[in-house]
Computed example of a mutant assay.
Amino acid sequence: MTGRRATTTLWRPTGPAELALVRELDWRAWPPRLPEQPIFYPVLDEDYAVRIARDWNVKHDGAGFVTRFEVDTGFLGRYPVRQVGGRTILELWVPAEELDEFNAHVVGRIEVVHEFH
């Protein structure tokens, strides 16, 4: 029996510096967190990612980008969905020390779907 594994679509609002590192990783992985970044926060709602990229990243970094990527659904079960505000403000909290394993479960490429300046 052949079949594709089930994936879940996630989004990540990001600034230009992180996006450059993703590009260096051939659009297939997220870079290691900085010491002041103990958690990697992908989000489950595109609109929420747009709001962060447009309203926060542009203000702080001069540009904001929304990326979309797929992750193996079975693997994601280890990360409970966290509601951090309204009903659509949903995130996964991936500890920095688990990011390499998380990256190993990214399916396909990370793509930029929105850009703000």
Rank of each mutant, 00 (worst) to 15 (best):
V113H: 05
E111M: 04
L10D: 15
F40Q: 05
P80T: 09
T14G: 02
I89R: 14
G108F: 10
E91L: 09
Y79M: 04
D100I: 03
W30E: 10
L92K: 01
V94G: 01
H60R: 14
N103Y: 06
T8Q: 15
Q83D: 11
I110N: 02
W11M: 01
N103K: 01
H105R: 06
G85Q: 06
Y41A: 05
D61T: 07
E36H: 12
F40V: 09
V107I: 07
A63G: 04
D47Q: 15
H105F: 08
I110A: 03
A49V: 05
T73E: 09
F116L: 01
E36F: 07
A104P: 06
F75D: 00
R23F: 10
R4L: 14
F69V: 14
P32K: 08
F69Y: 15
G74F: 00
L44Q: 06
G3M: 05
T2R: 04
D55Q: 12
L99H: 00
L90H: 14
G74E: 14
V71F: 03
R68M: 07
E98P: 09
I39V: 14
A63I: 08
L34N: 06
A6N: 01
A63W: 11
A29Y: 10
Q83Y: 12
T8D: 06
M1K: 12
A20S: 03
A17K: 15
I89M: 09
V50S: 10
L90S: 05
N57Q: 13
D47L: 00
H117Y: 03
E115P: 05
T67H: 01
P31L: 04
R5C: 03
D55S: 03
A20L: 05
T73G: 04
G15H: 04
G86C: 05
P80W: 09
E24V: 07
F75V: 02
L21F: 00
G64V: 01
R68P: 00
L19C: 05
V22H: 02
E70C: 13
P42T: 09
G77Q: 14
G77S: 00
H60V: 11
T88N: 12
E98T: 08
E46I: 02
E98M: 01
R23E: 15
P38F: 09
R82D: 10
P38W: 03
V22M: 09
T67R: 04
H117W: 02
T67I: 12
E36S: 13
V84C: 11
D47T: 10
F116M: 02
A29W: 02
V84E: 11
L25M: 06
R23M: 07
A53K: 09
E24P: 00
I52R: 12
K59Q: 14
A17C: 08
F75T: 03
